[in-house]
Design a protein around this nucleic acid. Structure first.
Lengths: 196, 196, 196, 196
DNA sequence: AATGAATGAGCCTTCATTCAT
DNA sequence: CATGAATGAAGGCTCATTCAT
């Protein structure tokens, strides 16, 4: 039975949706094009009418995820309580990652290994995110909300604090306690762990 | 040309060495047994005289890496300057990770998705590491060197701070500035980033 | 050169046909999937689009053979000359086996030792055949056409009388003289060999 | 630890003994040289000091079996009760086959498939056996103990009666009831199954 | 003669991709 | 655009055999 000829964008979208689930569940390499078309209820050929390769659809999934995760962070309004806004952003980020659950893992663990030739905008994505965090830190320093000091490495560490708990929860097959994670990070940002 | 007849341990070691490089460069799935034996200068059958499968040699590489990385951390002597010892450990860890370069990525990115059947001790490794970090934090709290508060999530974040800069440096194809990374983490642990 | 796109049933059938010849000539283990696809004029992947494994296609060949050989035996009509009908059945069976030539050897020699996990219905097939023969003998006894006595072992021997001459002809690379064989068996059934 | 340097014949014999068990349990193809040397407690190289190939040791096993099985048949003494002697021979044969159990299967099912190039004396063995049976039948006819008629096909059928029950018992994983089998065959030889 | 590490051809199987319909 | 049969390179693994010690 022939699937209805959807407009190209919808078909594409439904393939990406299916692919996201499949990749999330199995990971990139173990997931097969067969899995994806089965999940999408579409014939093999159809897949290749919309994507040139497995890699390309993976990139599409990734791009979508990046937008979604990046979108939850709200710009800081310097006239309001900054700490509270940072905290709220952390909670939103943690919640987003927890809800995406499996899917986010892709962004975090697999993408790099697939990105030969840099065809996937992963490096760019991270560069973008890092730049954003670094700018936030610098701005904060200028406003006196962030301690002075180098900013580049700190931004990297910050990213790690966000990603690692997600990874570990997945690895241990435990659910992610998003609020606890957000609070822990906030606590670290506020005062470190070592007492003076 | 026939490879010289080594005793099993040496041959095994040389295969693990070769495999480590190959896995580091290509990642688990893209690396083939063919790549490994070529790197080791050995025939296909020889590989299978020493390892039952690609997965098994991967596990061996992993185990080695764990030992090496874990080995650089030295226990804290409470009668001496604790902050300084923490800092020294961070520097040693950072240096170890930087020197292993590509190889460490294995520990960090792959291994999940390969671990069907839990045959690879990755989860166990992380559990072990986390337990160690958590204990260090708790001990520190008892000694008054670490701020009171929950310890579980913080340990996870700490791990992230260590791993992420390594990953990002790799992704950006930049060398890792180990001392800077260690200092940044130390700074974070000491006082967070937000000023009070 | 690409093979024409057949409907799945035809392709499957052509593969089974090819496999039957290959298995007949080489036997199960020595025959390779490569031999089969070559005989079928089809690419490797095509084979696995239709069969999950070499074992599965072997089972398919076996099933076909069973049907063909089993199909030539006609039920006895008690109102007619029974001896003559038995004899006719023997001739038909012998002819069928002779015409299948090599292929029948499969049914007779291989299949054991392949049947790990009992996935191949060989034991079942023989159980079925034996039951049929035993029933025929019992029925015959009730009708007074078959001597009284145990029936189980006799059925087994009967089967052996049919198979062995086929095997031996093959082994000696002689053609099978089907009518002679049928007559010999008929003679044996009628009066044994020892005179009283 | 180095095995004592047995005299060649003993070592050879112990290898053949080991091989017989291994082949009997697994069948020719699934049995590996590794299995055999393990069973014999000997190193790989040692095996090839005594046999040129797996096939060669298989042939040796076969030759041994042929001797053993053939040896139990005793020549008929025409001055004594011939029926009884035939019956006794049948019982001895059946018992021999039952005791060899698995090993005999080799002779019966696998050998042919391995005998490319006729390197194994299987055809010769069967020719020999058949000749012996045929001669017995002819002699019997001359003595009036065997019904007149062709003898060639009957001899083949006779062989089948002996082999098949062994095969079937094995296939069904039942023990072989040797006396019952011998009696059934004797009954068949005496009077067939069809009543007149 | 015994040893066992090394060999490599060859096998079965997978799966991303192509293309005729 | 949709379809799905066909493709074939590539991969993991086995195992009979060789040979230096």
């Amino acid at each position: 039975m022939r699937a209805p000829s959807l407009d190209p964008d919808s078909r594409r979208a439904s393939l990406v949706r299916a692919a996201r689930e499949v990749f999330a569940e199995k990971g990139y390499h173990p997931a097969s094009v067969g899995d994806i078309i089965e999940a999408a209820g579409v014939a093999r050929g159809t897949f290749y009418n919309h994507f040139e390769s497995k890699r390309e659809i993976f990139a599409a999934v990734l791009a979508e995820l990046m937008l979604e995760v990046g979108g939850v962070v709200q710009p800081i309004d310097v006239r309001q309580d900054i700490h509270e806004q940072v905290r709220a952003n952390l909670h939103r980020l943690a919640a987003a990652m927890a809800s995406q659950g499996a899917a986010v893992r892709i962004l975090f663990t697999e993408a790099e290994g697939i990105d030969k030739d840099g065809e996937i905008a992963l490096a760019a994505f991270y560069a973008h995110v890092l730049a954003r965090v670094e700018k936030a830190l610098s701005d904060g320093q200028r406003l006196g909300v962030v301690r002075p000091g180098e900013v580049r490495q700190s931004a990297r560490c910050l990213l790690g604090m966000l990603k690692e708990p997600v990874m570990l929860a997945r690895l241990a097959r435990e659910p992610l306690d998003a609020p606890a994670m957000a609070e822990a990070i906030y606590g670290l940002l506020r005062g470190g762990v070592l007492s003076v």
